[in-house]
């Protein structure tokens, strides 16, 4: 089940292109969140382009896998993945955050392929929990993924769901924390120290896996383990870099939610090897 070298190479190329396209869209509208979109790139791309059982032609299939992007500000990376899967037109990115567009600043459920609205942080894990619970009741083997930000775990609602999901033995639920260590006002240590994030989840009864969230092979292996783990939900604490792929954005809280100026945009595209 492990990722072949060829698949890994293809995904890497998709990630490069997706990063460039996402920055192009954010630059185009002069609004959005580059840092967290770049850090979650491998996580979303691996799930959408490789692992999840979804089909845009059977968008209402009750047995499809679901993903809740709880860190809704990374919506552009979600949209780019949905375009690749055929849920949205190829030129959709240009309409990001624009009036009358399907691509809202944060995920909205009327956008094809989006399973749950997000934006107010902290709520997505519980919604994913509800999906996992309902799918089990329906006798479906589909899996549910919840992608969270690290700053998002400041929200108490995350821990309400962290407490309840093991109670319901939701082994069809996998949470992934995009642990990029930077939030809007500064580092997570400065804003709200998370201390031993993995230990917190473990204490709530989750199967916890830590890995490099930019290493596709490592992420893929973690997702395999999650799928094989029975009786408890799994959380993958994915160590990532905010702004990954663009040297001057990496690790910088300033690039959490900043419009990209023309000069920085040109440099970023150059580093990413140009657009598609």
């Amino acid at each position: 089940m492990s990722l072949s070298k060829e698949r890994e190479a293809r995904l890497k190329e998709l990630c490069r292109v997706f990063r460039a396209d996402v920055l192009t869209a954010i630059h185009g509208v002069q609004s959005g969140h580059p840092g967290g979109s770049l850090s979650v790139c491998e996580i979303l791309t691996l799930l959408y382009q490789e692992r999840m059982h979804i089909d845009a032609n059977k968008a209402d299939d009750p047995n499809r896998d679901r993903l809740v992007l709880s860190k809704g500000h990374a919506a552009p990376m979600l949209y780019r993945n949905l375009i690749e899967k055929g849920y949205l037109p190829q030129d959709a990115m240009a309409s990001l955050r624009k009036t009358n567009s399907e691509l809202q600043g944060h995920p909205a459920r009327h956008t094809p392929g989006v399973e749950m609205p997000a934006g107010p942080l902290g709520l997505g894990l519980a919604a994913a929990q509800g999906m996992a619970l309902g799918l089990k009741l329906n006798g479906s083997g589909a899996r549910v993924y919840a992608v969270l930000g690290d700053g998002e775990t400041n929200e108490g609602a995350v821990w309400e769901a962290a407490m309840s999901a093991p109670k319901f033995a939701l082994d069809n639920l996998c949470a992934i924390v995009d642990y990029n260590k930077v939030q809007l006002d500064g580092t997570t240590d400065e804003v709200m120290p998370l201390r031993d994030l993995a230990a917190k989840w473990r204490a709530f009864g989750w199967n916890v896996i830590e890995c490099d969230g930019h290493d596709l092979m490592a992420l893929d292996a973690a997702l395999d383990t999650a799928e094989q783990t029975k009786g408890v939900p799994t959380v993958i604490v994915a160590h990532t870099v905010k702004g990954k792929g663009v040297s001057f954005m990496e690790g910088k809280s300033a690039w959490h939610g900043k419009a990209i100026d023309d000069e920085s945009f040109a440099k970023a595209l150059e580093e990413l090897g140009g657009a598609k």
Partner: peptide, 9 residues
Amino acid sequence: STAAGLASV
């Protein structure tokens, strides 16, 4: 929130 997820399936 859990109910929202349940409703969606």
